[in-house]
């Protein structure tokens, strides 16, 4: 078990709730976007930004910062809302999502918004870039304890690019790389098991190449996510006996609910890429206890 206090967990849960509300407002205001995946990853993002990563909200280029690469870029409303919650960008900017001239592009662009580590959208590429960054930190730069986190989705596992990157990270023992896999079970046109099944062996392309595999059995539960991340940083004698090693890159599978927090969106792949109406958003925000917008 982790050493997190109940107060700390409660604080992160409150951040996650604020982020979730903003995600709904942003996508409804924009009139397009990807709510299901954005809502499933909110809790993990809140854990990373408020309980795990080292960064300076006033200096996004801080040379000692940890790095987050969002490989499945379409869930960027959750990342933008998290960055606002962390004070990296102003909250007032969030409602410009997907508008002409906005820094908050429909899919994230590094050159437009300080605080983003890369440009993503087309699936599978973020992991290669995260692996390149981890390689540079481990082998080419002065000794450091910086860590690279990369969020990918289970639909993204369809991409061969993911397999290539997983092999590379395994070969070079990128122990400073942690992948958070959003196992929400859906992708654009159906469930992940219908579109391209994993045959019950999700993430096998990682474990086959010497990654150590961890699970958060509820990827929408802050305590559970933090436990998994904290656990991934240690190796018990039992784990070492089974081939785990502190030299291996880490995969954390987050079992999440797509559309988490919005009853009619949960587990329905039709909400992968469809915005709620402004009316829907009002009802959702009421349920999420946002009194301002009821």
């Amino acid at each position: 078990m982790s050493n997190r206090t109940p107060e700390q967990i409660k604080t992160i849960e409150q951040h996650a709730l604020n982020i979730r509300r903003n995600v709904i407002k942003m996508i409804a205001t924009a009139g397009s976007g990807h709510p299901a995946g954005s809502l499933s990853i909110v809790d993990a993002l809140a854990c990373l930004y408020f309980g795990v990563m080292r960064y300076d909200p006033h200096n996004p280029n801080d040379p000692n910062r940890d790095i987050l690469v969002l490989s499945n870029g379409h869930v960027c409303p959750a990342l933008y809302a998290t960055m606002a919650e962390a004070g990296i960008i102003p909250e007032s900017e969030l409602m410009t999502l997907r508008r002409f001239g906005s820094r908050l592009q429909g899919h994230p662009e590094r050159t437009k918004l300080p605080g983003l580590e890369t440009t993503s959208g087309p699936l599978g590429e973020g992991l290669s870039q995260a692996a390149g960054m981890a390689y540079a930190l481990k082998y080419l730069m002065p000794t450091n304890d910086r860590h690279v986190y990369c969020i990918i989705s289970d639909g993204e596992l369809n991409e061969g690019n993911i397999d290539e990157a997983a092999k590379f990270a395994g070969k070079y023992q990128l122990s400073n790389l942690t992948v958070l896999l959003d196992r929400n079970g859906i992708q654009l046109s159906g469930t992940t098991e219908n579109i391209l099944p994993n045959f019950g062996r999700c993430g096998i392309q990682f474990t086959a190449h010497n990654w150590d595999n961890f699970f958060a059995f509820s990827g929408n539960n802050v305590a559970c996510i933090l436990d998994a991340i904290d656990e991934s940083k240690r190796r018990t004698p039992e784990q070492l006996k089974h081939g785990f090693s502190l030299d291996h890159p880490r995969l954390i599978q987050l079992h999440t609910t797509p559309g988490k927090g919005v009853d009619f969106m949960e587990n329905d792949y039709n909400w992968h890429g469809k915005a709620p109406s402004l009316d829907d958003a009002k009802h959702i925000l009421a349920k999420l206890g946002d009194k301002k917008h009821v």
């Binding site: 890369t118 290669s128 390149g132 960054m133 390689y135 690019n161 290539e164």
Partner: peptide, 17 residues
């Protein structure tokens, strides 16, 4: 290895650092 998609992705990550 023979993995050209990863080749340029890793390069992009290295350039970022």
């Amino acid at each position: 290895g023979v993995a050209e998609q990863n080749l340029v992705g890793v390069a992009s990550g290295l350039a970022h650092m």
